[in-house]
Amino acid sequence: MTDNPNDLKPGFADPIAGSQDAFRGLLAAMSYPGSIHRVHLPEGHPAPLSAATAAVLLTLTDGETPLWLDEQADQGAVRAYVAFHSGAPVVDDLATARFAAIAAPRTMPALDRFAPGDPAYPDRSATLILQIEDLEGGETVTLTGPGIETTRTVAPKGLPADFWAQWDRNRMLFPCGVDVILTTGDSLMALPRTVHAEQEG
């Protein structure tokens, strides 16, 4: 890892088509919670961000969206990448962030420290990008809610130990609450605040 700005990684080969295609992946992911989507990837991504995390940042953030980076993600190369390709201001106060890129979710701050929006404007809430170890192979959780016909089983690996308990509290805030995008490598899944999660056993 280097802080050399000459090491700036490239974004989408075609920013217009690339972000459109990546957005459709996000749209499908948010519409069908828990479904896994490979997204259109940028040509390069700065460590420690995964390609999918970088794709989400390039697709959704710009000068109007304060971005919070966790300690792991807050690297010179990441800041340079964000500053050049997206222009999102990187903020220290996580409560003001509209987006958060979290490279070490196991030690991340509690979900309730991020902006949940307010009852009149629940859309003014944070979207958290959690870069986890794997979208599969973890503890099995059964999801229900809008976007899921009956139930959908997911097993993301690398979430904070009490994530699903936190998620339950987040869901209670509806219509407020944060929305989560889980990424690994070139793939992602989304957990909109409406999702109800039931742990096995």
């Binding site: 749209l27 948010m30 519409s31 959704l60 859309d123 809430s125 979207t127 976007g147 219509p175 909109p192």
Partner: peptide
Amino acid sequence: EQTKRMIRRGLLKALAIPGY
């Protein structure tokens, strides 16, 4: 592209808060 991004962010929030 800036406008599309704004609308795209809005659409994702709209899906997360059905009917709002």
